[in-house]
């Protein structure tokens, strides 16, 4: 236990307590709507990486254009849902009552569920040998990010108000 604590205390000593406090507060008491937006950003970044690899492989001739188009079509759905997700997250953030908050969280959840279709479609693409490894990894990254946002929004759906957790090292 001491070994786990010592680096933390040393960091506090070196940097001053204020940055340490700020860091802990943002990581440990992050409201679900902020967290969902941040994880949503991760989804978009993962999808962008996937699209960039599709572009690269297609340009290099390692991925046939029809297969690249199939994955890109899935990414277009992610992009379209992202716009709606941004709007839904703003409504979730603005909700003032618990019931309203739960309803808005459901909308966010529904949008995320709708992403499963294009993601399944991506998984079904028969990738050529030269492209399979990198694309499979990147598609996995997108799915992992979607799973994370789903878990985060589930907190809002549970009806529990966000509250800071009392933690003692």
């Amino acid at each position: 236990m001491l070994k786990r604590i010592v680096p933390f205390v040393l960091a506090a000593l070196l940097l001053g307590l204020a940055p340490a406090l700020s860091g802990c507060a943002s990581a440990g008491t992050r409201p679900p709507d902020v967290a969902a937006a941040q994880i949503g950003t991760d989804v978009l970044k993962a999808t962008t990486l996937l699209q960039a690899e599709v572009n690269r492989l297609t340009a290099a001739g390692a991925l046939p254009v029809p297969l690249g188009t199939q994955i890109t079509d899935g990414n277009k759905v992610v992009s379209a849902k992202a716009g709606q997700l941004s709007t839904a997250l703003k409504a979730y953030h603005a909700a003032t009552s618990l019931a309203d908050r739960s309803a808005k969280a459901s909308e966010v959840q529904a949008l995320i569920t709708q992403l499963s279709g294009p993601l399944s479609s991506m998984l079904g693409v028969k990738l050529p040998d030269g492209a399979a490894q990198s694309l499979s990894r990147l598609i996995g990254g997108v799915m992992q990010a979607v799973g994370a946002i789903q878990a985060e929004v589930a907190k809002g759906l549970s009806g529990a108000l966000w509250r800071p957790q009392l933690q003692v090292a």
């Binding site: 604590i5 506090a12 307590l17 340490a20 008491t29 800071p164």
Partner: peptide, 16 residues
């Protein structure tokens, strides 16, 4: 030293 670490974390997590 562990208590201090705990204290710092406590302050950070109690205050929202």
């Amino acid at each position: 030293i562990a208590a201090i670490g705990g204290m710092v974390r406590l302050i950070a997590t109690v205050v929202r």
